[in-house]
Amino acid sequence: MMGRVGLHLIVHEFIERLRDRWVIASSLVFALLASAVSAYGITAGANAVALTGPSLATLVSLLVPLVAMILSHDAIVGERERNTLGLLLSLAVRRWEVIVAKYIGRGAALAVSVCAGLGLASVVAGKEQGAVLLQLIPATLLLGWAFLAIGMLISSISSRPVSASTMVVIVWFVLVFFFDLALLGLLVATDGYISTKTISNLVIANPAGLYRIQVLSRLSGAEALANLGMTVAPPSGALIAFIWGSWIVGPLVVSWAILSRRRVR
């Protein structure tokens, strides 16, 4: 059970992140781009969602992981740099509470950013289409929270904020851009030796890939996935929950283990 310090830390982290200019700037960029995609979709009339849905999903899968990792990459290493990690741990708080409280506080700030961005996009899209776009919010939050947890892990491993920032860019590039290309390359290079099913499983093992599949199947149905080469059945709800859960809980547990073992200055 989380103690008083942990609960106050959640609120503190939430306020701090909402005031951070980098977070404000990246959230504004996301909101503006999402609204621009929505505005463009209006021109398609009745087919607006079919046009803007996939575009918005692609935009979200590119931007939200970056915003999430910007939010969390300095959670631990920033405290180390400012010499406040020891001060924080000198309070009546356990180390897992620090990790979890920072995660929840920052996760709430991310939720505000995502809801503001997609909310604005849905307002621009109009009442009917907007309601469909709002359905993207739960999956988008899961995507953001998974990358937020990865950012926490990066923050726990790094010795300096600048190395954490570098690692964020590398992880973002690998998971968001390079991963799908690498799988495609693997498929071509092995000339069918690796089955489509294996490749599909690898796609959904990546949070960015899972998000795209989840959102596209919701907006455009299984047909849209087949058009993208996903010939296997969409993952079950339990599998989806397991993958999201692993990407959220796994990095946090490792972060806690690292914080427990590393020397605090």
Partner: peptide, 12 residues
Amino acid sequence: YLPEAVSFSDSL
């Protein structure tokens, strides 16, 4: 506790 050369979050 007062740590050596302490700083705090710039945004607060």
